Simulated assay, not measured.
Amino acid sequence: MQLTPQILPDANSIGTIIADLILERMERKAGRPFLLGCPSGRTAAPVYAALARKAGKGADLSKLTIVMMDDYVLPDGDGSLRIVDPEASYSCLGFARREILAPIAKACADAGTTPPTEIWTANPSDPGEYDSRIEAAGGIDLFLLASGDTDGHVAFNQPGTPRNARTHIVELGEATRRDNMNTFPEFTDLRMVPRHGVTVGVDTIARLSTEVVMILCGQNKREAYSRIANAHQYEPDWPATIATECRNAAFLVDHDAATVRV
């Protein structure tokens, strides 16, 4: 299914619209847990900031459950894999704690409301358990999606990811690792970026999400905009095109990302 982009002035406009959508969908669930699929990094940051602002005005986010897309992993002493230390600035779990829940919790405290506390991450020693846990909870209510600038990765799904991929361990390509150097300035050398991650698969996103929103902001996303806007189905060389095969998919883009080079 080809997606129709909704072009908005800037990232903050996108953040406000999506935050309103999340709150409206939460109200529909009548107090039951609301699973929000979340990327770390820059793309969805305006959404998280808008949710915190709305929490400060009394919005009820107590039932929000943050379901993280992915995280970096490192070898453990016994040969197994573990997610990186949550205290590391590039930890996706740490990002969820610091950049998503902490501002919302502070806003809730100021407003005298109950803050959300739940964060889910995949266990690299048993990746398949993540899909089972999500499915048992009724699926992701709304998944926020982003695309890599130059290789179209979504979560840590690399070019060539098969359509049936579920949560798995992945070796990260150079383009994905360079994208993350832009996100985390302390990565001053590509050798500093972990080489592996645990990630939801493209099938996890499409099969277990009730609704998705693909977000593209900035001039660096123009190639991603062109690829996704012109896709009719999943294209393995640009995994973010999985959005075309998701139920209730929206495509929100700012002017900078949607401007065609001449």
Rank of each mutant, 00 (worst) to 15 (best):
A258F: 10
D131V: 06
D151N: 15
Y90H: 13
R166A: 03
D85I: 03
E174K: 15
R42K: 07
R177V: 09
W120D: 06
N164C: 07
A137T: 02
G77L: 11
K63T: 04
G77P: 07
I242C: 08
R227H: 13
A111C: 02
D149A: 14
V67P: 13
C38Q: 15
Y48P: 00
G15P: 06
K29C: 01
L190R: 08
T16F: 01
I17A: 15
I7H: 08
A231R: 11
I228E: 12
E129K: 11
E171T: 14
G58P: 15
K106Q: 01
N123M: 13
R178I: 11
L142P: 14
V198Q: 03
D203H: 08
P103D: 02
Y48V: 01
T4P: 03
E223L: 14
T204E: 05
G31K: 00
W238K: 13
I169A: 06
F34D: 04
L23Y: 04
T210P: 02
T176N: 14
N157R: 01
Y130H: 07
F187T: 02
D141M: 03
N157Y: 03
A96Y: 03
S125I: 01
S80Q: 05
A88V: 08
A122S: 05
E174Q: 13
N182E: 12
D10G: 06
N248M: 07
S132M: 00
P39T: 03
T183H: 00
D203T: 04
A44K: 02
Y48G: 01
F187W: 03
G139K: 09
R178D: 06
C217R: 14
D20R: 10
V154M: 07
D71I: 05
T167W: 07
L81A: 06
A231P: 12
Y72W: 05
R28E: 12
S91M: 00
C108N: 03
A240G: 12
A231G: 10
D76T: 04
T204L: 01
F187R: 00
C217E: 09
L101W: 09
A136M: 08
D71N: 13
M181N: 09
L3E: 10
G197E: 08
C217V: 13
N180W: 03
T150I: 06
H255I: 06
E135C: 07
H232L: 10
S62D: 08
E223D: 14
L23E: 10
A59M: 04
P239M: 09
Y234S: 12
V212K: 04
T121Q: 13
R178P: 05
L21D: 15
R195T: 03
T241N: 12
R207N: 09
R42G: 05
T204R: 04
Y72R: 04
R97T: 12
D256Y: 10
P86A: 15
R207A: 11
R178M: 08
